[in-house]
Design a protein around this nucleic acid. Structure first.
Lengths: 352, 352
DNA sequence: TTGTATGCGTTATCAA
DNA sequence: TTGATAACGCATACAA
């Protein structure tokens, strides 16, 4: 018995069919070396390859070249609506350039993240696009020191020279605060994301600066840190703020999920948005315009973020002289119904 | 000059360190062949491998075994909130089993889909999890005929014996209709998804059956097909239905996005939900509970769908005696505020 | 312009 | 239980 399945043709099969050596076929089929082969030979080889249905085996090629044409996409959680557009943008660019994306979820768990990244490395990915947000990151430092190519998206590491693509969060926050100030708000609170994340820190700092720039009272108790980037943490933070007896008429949330947590607390306590409290989100995740109170938020160009990160990574892979740089994409305020001029008393009073 | 980087250790390095042959190391490190090696030797090898930081090279292994430990995930569009949970569930199971997921978006474009699948095949994926919904699918047939391992998720192909994991859409629709009937609705419309998709067809059929089972008037004009699974198509469909002068008090939408399109039309025309029209969605995508009118919908176990599909695929890869089968996961109705007993006149009257 | 030889890191198949 | 050898499919330095 010979063979069960006709098994896929290899370079050799094509070579035999044409009557040349496998090397020649390899050269003819590779655009970069094609010029070394006679035009006539190339034609015959192409034809034979086509009729045999030859497909180069990328595994064999990888083993030889130690390049895999895959890159790793490290994200915390694909079900967080922030990330799919980023992945989408990155994937489109990668695919067009001949790369495939290996996607892993870390759940913001350092142990899991390390394991996932290890798994990616063992698969010989040529680089990483990293969208996880933890600020202090031994793994990141390790990768960087080991010379792994990577691009950070939606975050930066100040201490390391790693290329990054981020949106102009500071400007986004500034726009949000300006919008509230123009509406007449004076006492504005900020529900910051965890300060263990670069975006959390950055947006909180931007908030302080914006408040200063408008000569508003800089009350530190009006800035509270959420324990997570999610609704529950946002709800807890606002509840604490309300219970603390602070007077404030508007809230800039660290992200949309935190803002949605605010909605929950307000509903629970019979407070209205924007009547009792104006709320601004951040990110502009889908369907915000369809909420009970459509959320005013800062829109970020997520697809572009992913696409640009992919471009950078490809450049750094293919151009050895690449110097790390940072790209800053603009953020824009999207005004909806959750913000209005300050009405009556302080919500903290109304609350109890 | 010797070497720039210390380069990653190979089997040989470990073998040299221990003083055995590479073959022995290979056997010792592979759980399936470990028993062939002396316990003492295994111990020494493990130790050396560990201290050298040896990581097996999956590329080399793939070349030898012609297995890649990767599977392809083919989805229409990652930014559709339906898919991330499926991907998430699949990825978790795959990762645990030592497989990696290569994800591609097709945008429901047949040409693009073919190209993406080709790209996956050339990367030697061992199987496919396919979440695209097109019913008539030459590509699917081809893959099947070529003996490619695959599992369909959230869809079926009646004519082909391909394993699939789907939710009990028919039961979900039945629950939705029963709910509306119990509220007192009699004239219920269905905004079906495109009949080029298996889910579109299936749910429409289920709707007809459910209406029959409750002895409601089976008015064909109350079932309209949307041109897509999105808000715009849903809006167009409902607008057409309203303009058509049909009387109806409730709508079962083919999915949540179509239901959201209904919301848009109702808002535009000054109609209220559920006052003028009860609306039921399908899928329970995130944040539906935070909408202006929280949407009653049918919840599907998306994460489980993905996870089960991955399990099936792995089984079919690793067990040659695997027989294709279909898994049906239960759907549950989630009642929110968009459905209530029928009130006054027909919305079609109010509309003009 | 084409062919030869070699090796990427691993595993399968022998033989010892 | 261990070792020797070859091979997976391809790319590249070198020779012709």
């Amino acid at each position: 018995m010979t063979r069960e399945r006709p098994s896929v043709p290899t370079l050799r099969d094509v070579a035999d069919a044409v009557g040349v050596h496998a090397t020649t076929v390899s050269r003819a089929l590779n655009p970069k070396t094609r010029s070394q082969v006679g035009a006539e030979t190339v034609k015959r080889i192409m034809k034979a390859a086509d009729s045999l249905g030859y497909r180069p085996n990328p595994i064999a090629r990888s083993l030889k070249t130690s390049r895999s044409a895959t890159v790793g996409l490290v994200i915390p959680d694909l079900t967080n609506p922030l990330f799919p557009p980023i992945v989408r943008g990155a994937e489109a660019v990668l695919e067009a350039a001949g790369y495939s994306a290996l996607i892993v979820n870390t759940d913001s768990d350092l142990v899991r993240e390390r394991a996932r990244v290890e798994s990616l490395r063992s698969r010989q990915v040529e680089g990483f696009i990293i969208a996880t947000a933890l600020l202090d990151h031994p793994l990141l430092r390790e990768l960087h020191e080991q010379g792994a190519r990577m691009v950070l998206v939606n975050r930066k590491v100040e201490t390391l020279q790693i290329p990054s693509v981020v949106s102009d969060d500071a400007d986004g926050i500034a726009q949000a605060v300006r919008h509230l100030v123009e509406l007449g708000h004076v006492r504005i609170a900020h529900l910051a994301g965890p300060r263990t994340t670069s975006t959390g820190l950055l947006r909180a700092r931007a908030f302080r600066h914006a408040v200063q720039d408008h000569d508003l009272p800089a009350d530190p108790s009006l800035i509270v840190e959420c324990t997570g980037w999610n609704e529950a943490a946002g709800a807890r933070a606002l509840a604490g703020l309300l219970d603390g007896g602070n007077a404030f008429t508007a809230v800039v949330a660290g992200n949309d999920l935190i803002a949605l947590g605010c909605y929950d607390v307000l509903a629970e306590r019979g407070l209205s948005c924007p009547g009792d409290l104006s709320v601004v989100g951040f990110n502009d995740i889908p369907f915000l315009d369809k909420l009970r109170t459509p959320l005013t938020t800062v829109r970020l160009p997520h697809v572009d973020l992913g696409a640009e990160a992919a471009r950078m990574l490809i450049e750094s892979i293919e151009d050895s002289g690449y110097r790390p740089r940072s790209l800053l994409l603009p953020a824009t305020l999207t005004v909806r119904a959750s913000t209005t001029r300050p009405h009556t008393g302080q919500p903290s009073r109304t609350a109890r």
